[in-house]
């Protein structure tokens, strides 16, 4: 896909988004005008701003049509193969991290995530890999759960219960 095509598609997407937001306000039955005794309705702000977004999108599409933007004149690839690989693999890795955090818990997910980046993608030595795979969850546990007292997701009950012994150990020995 060229940059020119990408700009057209993005312009259409932003226009559809803007119209969708306006529809959302209307569908929720929010007033987009003056309400006697109460002032501007709850829908005034999002509705009229979304209209502004729609107009800005139309302006972008018009500028694309008339070749006014540098992007509309560019036939270069929007994302080259190397970039697509790097970006897609990174985005997918984060996606997988979030899924894994939900099911197997933060710490196991972190270990797999770090292994993937450090060993599989980075091809670092086993020493470096192990230090990151083990060190990261420990650092995160100390920072978030001990210092910030934030309970990070532990996954399904099976994994959560398995992890409880670490918390129990900490509370027994340090509090």
């Amino acid at each position: 896909m060229t940059v020119r095509t990408a700009e057209l598609l993005m312009g259409i997407a932003t226009l559809v988004l803007s119209l969708g937001l306006m529809y959302n306000v209307w569908a929720d039955g929010l007033r987009v005008d003056w309400v006697d005794g109460r002032g501007p309705g709850a829908g005034v702000w999002p509705f009229w701003l979304s209209l502004g977004m729609a107009l800005a999108s139309v302006a972008t599409l018009y500028r694309w049509y008339s070749g006014a933007t540098p992007e509309s004149r560019s036939d270069a690839p929007y994302i080259d193969k190397d970039t697509l690989f790097l970006v897609a693999i990174s985005a997918f890795a984060i996606f997988a991290l979030l899924v894994m955090m939900t099911y197997i818990g933060t710490y196991l997910a972190l270990m797999i995530f770090m292994f993937f980046f450090v060993r599989v993608l980075g091809r670092h030595s086993w020493g470096v890999t192990n230090s990151f795979v083990i060190g990261t969850p420990i650092f995160i546990y100390l920072l978030f759960e001990v210092a910030l007292t934030k309970y990070l997701p532990k996954g399904l009950p099976f994994f959560e219960e398995g992890f409880l012994w670490i918390d129990n150990f900490r509370y027994e020995w340090f509090y």
Binding site: I94, L97, F117
Partner: peptide, 11 residues
């Protein structure tokens, strides 16, 4: 290397 920095930032 970026393969060490990037995952830390993402996490």
């Amino acid at each position: 290397p970026f393969t060490l920095l990037t995952p830390i930032i993402f996490v």
